[in-house]
């Protein structure tokens, strides 16, 4: 049995230690907001936060995350600036990639609280959104950054 710390709760799962975290979250724990898309860490859509850092859950084994705190989008408060900004700017289209993109943004803003446009481009350049919601993602990241700095909210 492997113990996983996900969204503040500890769960035990009976899987091979080399099973990708993605499939354990989805199939064993039923956290389907973590999405399978490419399986090769190319698209960023399966991103989760591991001790606050964005990682691609398709390409990390469950064994490697034992002892770490895992956050999926459900573990981010509904009044978090990133979630508020994502709704305010009406970002998602199909929405499939957005949990991963938002989590990568949470990590990014925790390190770069007041990013320039160029920094946003660089930080989000390795995620895929096939619908093309990028212009709105960009606006939402700026809005979330502004909310964080003015309200002193920590991600």
């Amino acid at each position: 049995m492997i113990s996983l710390h996900v969204n503040g709760e500890v769960s035990k799962v009976d899987v091979d230690p080399d099973t990708p975290l993605l499939w354990v979250l989805r199939d064993n724990l039923g956290i389907t907001s973590v999405k399978y898309t490419c399986g090769i860490a190319e698209c960023g859509i399966c991103t989760v936060l591991l001790d606050g850092e964005a990682v691609r859950s398709c390409s990390i084994t469950v064994e490697e995350v034992v002892g770490s705190k895992i956050l999926t989008i459900e573990g981010i408060a509904d009044d978090h600036p990133v979630k508020i900004a994502w709704i305010e700017k009406q970002v998602p289209q199909c929405g499939y990639c957005q949990p991963g993109v938002m989590l990568q943004t949470v990590d990014f803003l925790s390190r770069v609280p007041d990013p320039s446009g160029e920094q946003i481009n660089e930080a989000l350049d390795d995620v895929i959104c096939r619908c093309g919601s990028h212009p709105r993602m960009k606006q939402a990241i700026k809005l979330a950054a502004g909310m964080t700095s003015t309200a002193g909210v920590k991600s």
Partner: peptide, 18 residues
Amino acid sequence: QRLDIPDKVKGKTVYGID
């Protein structure tokens, strides 16, 4: 406001694969 967006932002939306 698009009616489907809040669930999509919260990760609650059920796609076929889910």
